[in-house]
Amino acid sequence: MADAVSPRTAAEAAPKGRALRAFLRHRGATVALFLLTVMTGAALLAPWIAPYDPEKINILRSLAAPSAQHWLGTDEVGRDVLSRLLFGGRVSIVVGLVAATLSVAIGVAIGGLSAYFGGLLDAVLMRFTDGMLSIPLFFFLLVVMAVFGSGLTQIVIVIALTSWMPVARIVRGEVLRVKALPYVEAAEALGARRLHVILRHLLPQTVPSVIVAATLGVANAILLESALSYLGLGIQPPIPSWGNMLQGSQAYVWSQPLLALWPGLMIFVAVMAYNALGDGIRDALDPGAG
């Protein structure tokens, strides 16, 4: 039955290969994809490729300059910086992906329900969304982390709970648009159940915009995690994260400035890559923009 009213919109109506080609033409996005693959791979393989135990100290070799044994030198207690970067990447990537996924899930749920049911529910949910958008979230985040303690789980949840709003708005807009399309009306007229309509017909239409929002969301989450860790409110040592490595290194900028360079550079590159990827996907799906 669903096949009878083939759900296709302008963006998807284009031959599948075109979007891919458009994406690949986007040089920034291809580079980004490559970088992200390398970074994610390196982080996943950290236990096998890291040259040292990231938590093994050697106080006699502290703050060493880069050398053949320690490519990026050692930190204040002689831990290998490269190994810590590799392991630190796992935290950033996990936080980024999980928090973005969660926030997308919340956003899709709220935006979808709001648009589909409309009326009072829509009004309430959208006022709530506007309200969330207009409070100073970073400050809120800061207080919540300080007051409730920090840790991987807390940080993921808190980021997700404070960053779903743009997704909700996008999804609501898309669903409203699609809802008015003939085939959805047809499906409803044919007596399809509501949930079925939502899951089968409406949500798939929002996928492209949601993918873009999610990609940008990962960048945002990585940035937030590292900012909180930098303030000492995020991931706690001895677990290395790029944010807390950067915080730890600040005390030593005068004696070993390179120590602050690496973790920040990794955050920068990861965030930039996710942003570029998001831009690339958007351009590929919507060739008219720009």
Binding site: L246, S249, P257, L261, I267, F268, M272, N275
Partner: peptide, 23 residues
């Protein structure tokens, strides 16, 4: 502009201190 949006400002701050104050 793209880099400006992506750069973590705390890192930029530390790097600027390293360059303009320390070095």
């Amino acid at each position: 502009a793209f880099m400006g949006v992506s750069i973590p400002n705390f890192w930029l701050g530390i790097m600027m201190i390293v360059l303009f104050s320390v070095t």
